[in-house]
Amino acid sequence: MTDEANRAAFLEIQGRMIETTGKVKQVQNQMRNKEGEKKRAFLTLEELRQLPDDTNTYKSIGRTFVLEPKSILMNEQEQKLKDSESAIASLQSSKEYLEKLMAEVENNLKELLQQDPGLAHQIMSMTVV
Results as ranks from 00 to 15, higher is better:
97 Y>A: 12
55 T>F: 11
83 D>K: 13
90 S>K: 15
59 K>Q: 12
125 S>W: 02
34 K>I: 11
72 I>Y: 04
83 D>W: 05
77 Q>K: 15
109 L>N: 05
113 L>R: 12
40 R>P: 00
51 L>R: 13
20 T>P: 10
60 S>Y: 01
32 R>V: 03
119 L>Y: 01
48 L>N: 05
64 T>C: 02
30 Q>W: 08
102 M>C: 01
71 S>W: 06
20 T>N: 15
15 G>T: 07
14 Q>D: 14
121 H>I: 09
59 K>I: 08
68 E>R: 12
97 Y>L: 11
42 F>T: 06
92 Q>C: 01
117 P>L: 07
16 R>L: 12
45 L>Y: 06
117 P>S: 06
64 T>Q: 11
69 P>D: 10
73 L>D: 01
121 H>Y: 04
55 T>R: 14
44 T>R: 13
85 E>C: 00
110 K>S: 04
105 V>G: 02
57 T>I: 10
17 M>V: 02
78 E>K: 09
114 Q>F: 08
109 L>C: 05
41 A>Y: 10
102 M>Q: 15
31 M>K: 11
57 T>E: 01
40 R>N: 06
122 Q>T: 06
125 S>H: 03
102 M>D: 13
45 L>H: 02
19 E>C: 05
117 P>I: 08
121 H>D: 11
97 Y>R: 13
40 R>T: 04
44 T>I: 02
110 K>A: 10
76 E>K: 12
27 V>G: 01
77 Q>Y: 09
24 V>C: 09
94 S>I: 06
111 E>K: 07
81 L>Y: 15
75 N>H: 06
95 K>H: 14
82 K>V: 04
90 S>R: 14
111 E>D: 10
103 A>G: 04
80 K>S: 09
98 L>Q: 03
83 D>Q: 14
68 E>T: 08
79 Q>A: 07
52 P>V: 13
68 E>L: 04
111 E>W: 03
18 I>Y: 05
38 K>A: 08
